[in-house]
């Protein structure tokens, strides 16, 4: 006898995603790069690479280094600019029938407002993710480390759009709960965490930094315990959904985040290792629910808090 399919849907503000497994910004391009190999329509959402107002060429290479159980990246927000993304990428991605979340990166509040306006107007995106946590560009993290600036930014974008707003938090702070509360109070419908941890690696032979940008963002299994801890702490202080990310490679990892308090998960570095990681984790969640008599995935969100 086959078990009934569990309810995996997730609500983020006014948006209902079919399931909690999405791709993490910057690790899945515009989805199209993986369309050959991965059934995009099965994903809960595709979060596209960060968009900026003007095109950005990105940082000088080398842009990545493998580290113990992880990797450092300093891509430098390379992207063709919001207008080109909206005109050239989104219509094709929308054709796959997967919810699209735009990840926005700006240098000032006005940039974020303009970006939100453009993506809201294009009609293809289901939600906006405010990236206030990029460690790889000058000032990229400035908003994400200060509660007042976070609140001002989120509030300004909130004022001009009804699209669900997700704020992506940086772990490079003393107290992540302060930033989380500031974002939610200012109107963020959900929180995404964590972005990469600021790190560095040196080539001892050349006696120089390995990355062209010297410092970069650490991702992969190495950061998972930090990310789980962040989700755990923030779950206690906010009542909006949390999208967990940080080294999720398999279904057990995804479950760890869900039990810490995440309503959804974003798969990042794992896509490089296994392009089918997202859909395999989704299959694993269905199996887990069925074999544990879980009818609705929300039953186990935050369950580790007791």
């Amino acid at each position: 006898m086959s078990e009934a399919c569990p309810d995996l849907s997730v609500r983020i503000g006014s948006l209902v995603l079919p399931n909690p497994v999405m791709t993490a910004s910057g690790t899945f391009g515009y989805g199209l790069e993986y369309a050959d190999i991965c059934d995009l329509s099965r994903l809960g959402a595709v979060v596209i690479k960060a968009a900026t107002v003007a095109p950005r060429v990105g940082n000088r290479p080398p842009r990545i280094v493998e580290t113990a159980a992880g990797m450092l990246n300093a891509i430098g927000l390379q992207n063709p600019g919001a207008d080109a993304i909206i005109a050239e990428k989104l219509p094709e991605l929308a054709g796959f029938g997967v919810p699209i979340i735009a990840n926005l990166a700006g240098e000032c509040v006005d940039d974020y407002v303009l970006l939100a306006d453009k993506f809201a107007a294009c009609g293809h995106v289901a939600a906006l993710e405010l990236n206030i946590s990029c460690p790889n560009v000058e000032g990229g993290m400035a908003f994400g480390v200060c509660p007042e600036m976070t609140a001002e930014l989120v509030g300004s974008v909130r004022a001009i759009t009804d699209l669900p707003l997700i704020t992506k938090l940086s772990p490079n702070v003393t107290d992540i709960t302060e930033i989380a509360v500031a974002a939610v109070t200012a109107g963020s419908d959900a929180l995404s965490m964590i972005n990469t941890l600021l790190g560095m690696s040196i080539d001892v032979r050349r006696r120089r930094p390995l990355l062209g940008n010297a410092t970069g963002g650490l991702s992969g299994p190495a950061i998972r315990p930090v990310a789980v801890r962040c989700v755990w702490q923030v779950y206690d202080v906010v009542d909006v959904p949390i999208i967990g990310s940080g080294g999720i490679m398999c279904v057990e990892d995804a479950l760890e985040f869900i039990m810490a308090g995440a309503s959804a998960v974003a798969i990042g570095t794992a896509n490089f290792v296994n392009p089918l990681a997202g859909t395999e984790i989704l299959d694993g969640l269905v199996d887990y629910c069925q074999s544990n008599g879980i009818k609705d995935i929300s039953e186990i969100v935050g369950v580790a808090h007791g």
């Binding site: 690790t27 790069e33 000088r60 842009r63 990545i64």
Partner: peptide, 17 residues
């Protein structure tokens, strides 16, 4: 040659000038 993440054009890790 360049250091690669995804290998499929998605992550922009493998840039050369």
């Amino acid at each position: 040659e360049q250091r690669m993440g995804c290998g499929v054009g998605a992550c922009l890790s493998c840039a050369i000038g």
